Amino acid sequence: MKNVRAEARRRRVLAPLAGLVLAWALLLTCLLPIAVAQGRVVPSVTQMRLEQADDGVYLTAAVQFELPSLVEEVLDKGIAIYFVAEAEVFQERWYWTDRKVAQVTRHMRLAYQPLTRRWRLNVSPVPITGAAGFGVSLNQNFDSLADAMDAVKRVGRLRLGDAAEIGDEPLHQVMFRFRLDTSQLPRPFQIGVVGQADWNIVAERSAKLALEKQR
């Protein structure tokens, strides 16, 4: 008899919790398609690879995200947008905090050229602002926005340093970050994008990578 009463009390306690869990599950099921439909899928880093070449150690990464229609409209008006990719390598130390042994940053400027009807991508190790930034940048031209964005998402050959600087551990702790940099937009646009989720494109990933020999 006591066991029957205990089981009844347990069911009375768990019933509301089960209902709450079911409600949350239904809510998430409804919201997920909406998020996908609005292009709000969370950006992610889908690939990271550490390679050693004759002239140093390089990181290759790939990022997956969709460019919101609002950002595309800004590009169509001739306003350039900027992306930043950053990578850091740490040496693990059991007796102290991890030591940073390498850091590299890549700046990318994407703009539409109305006269040629082509897309130009500038890539530079320093912020592309003014003549100084353009002077050290590499330029690529594309016939479509899709082709230009494919190049933006493939972050290749980020030079981290010499092999001696990185170390000879079997695995290396690497942190990679990618973001849309709104701080380089024209001042009126910087004010307008505050609080707008469409401009919040950020992806990062931390992983232990083996140093592969470049083929």
Rank of each mutant, 00 (worst) to 15 (best):
L27K: 09
A132Y: 12
K153H: 05
Y58I: 04
L14V: 08
I166Y: 00
R11N: 12
G161K: 02
P114N: 12
D54W: 10
S69P: 02
S124Q: 03
F134M: 14
E88N: 07
V126K: 07
G130S: 06
Q52S: 15
A197S: 15
G78W: 10
P170R: 07
R177A: 13
S124F: 02
S183K: 13
D55H: 13
V174G: 00
A23D: 11
L145R: 06
D147F: 02
A87N: 04
L67W: 00
S69A: 11
A87Y: 00
C30I: 13
A8F: 10
A8V: 09
R5Y: 07
T29A: 14
Q214R: 13
L50S: 03
Q173M: 10
L211S: 03
R157G: 04
V13I: 15
I128C: 03
E86K: 01
H107V: 04
A53Q: 15
A62W: 04
T116S: 13
R159W: 03
P33M: 07
P114A: 10
L27Y: 10
V193M: 04
R159P: 01
S124I: 04
A62H: 08
N122E: 10
L28K: 11
A23I: 08
M108D: 01
A148V: 03
K153A: 00
S44C: 09
S144H: 08
E88C: 02
R177T: 12
G39Y: 01
E66T: 09
R12Y: 08
A197H: 14
S206D: 10
R159Q: 15
L171G: 07
K77E: 14
R5C: 05
R154W: 05
P33L: 07
A62N: 14
V4A: 09
A6C: 08
Y95W: 14
M175F: 08
E212M: 11
A62S: 15
E86W: 01
F176L: 12
D150S: 15
V45D: 02
R109V: 00
K100Y: 01
F178N: 00
A210M: 10
T105N: 07
K213L: 08
L26C: 15
F134I: 13
F178A: 00
F142M: 05
Q196F: 09
S124C: 11
A163W: 01
Y58V: 02
E7V: 05
D150F: 02
L32F: 09
V202N: 09
T46L: 07
N122F: 07
L121S: 01
R109K: 15
A203M: 04
A15Y: 09
L26P: 04
E165C: 06
S69V: 14
R157F: 08
E204H: 08
R118P: 00
S183W: 07
A87K: 00
R154M: 10
Q47Y: 15
P127N: 05
G135T: 11
T129L: 12
M48N: 03
L31E: 13
L59K: 01
A148S: 06
D143G: 09
P188Q: 12
V57D: 01
V4S: 11
L121G: 00
E92K: 07
Q47P: 03
Q184L: 15
Y112D: 06
T129R: 06
K213G: 10
Q190R: 13
L115D: 14
A85C: 14
W96H: 06
R109W: 00
L27D: 08
S144R: 07
V194E: 15
E212D: 13
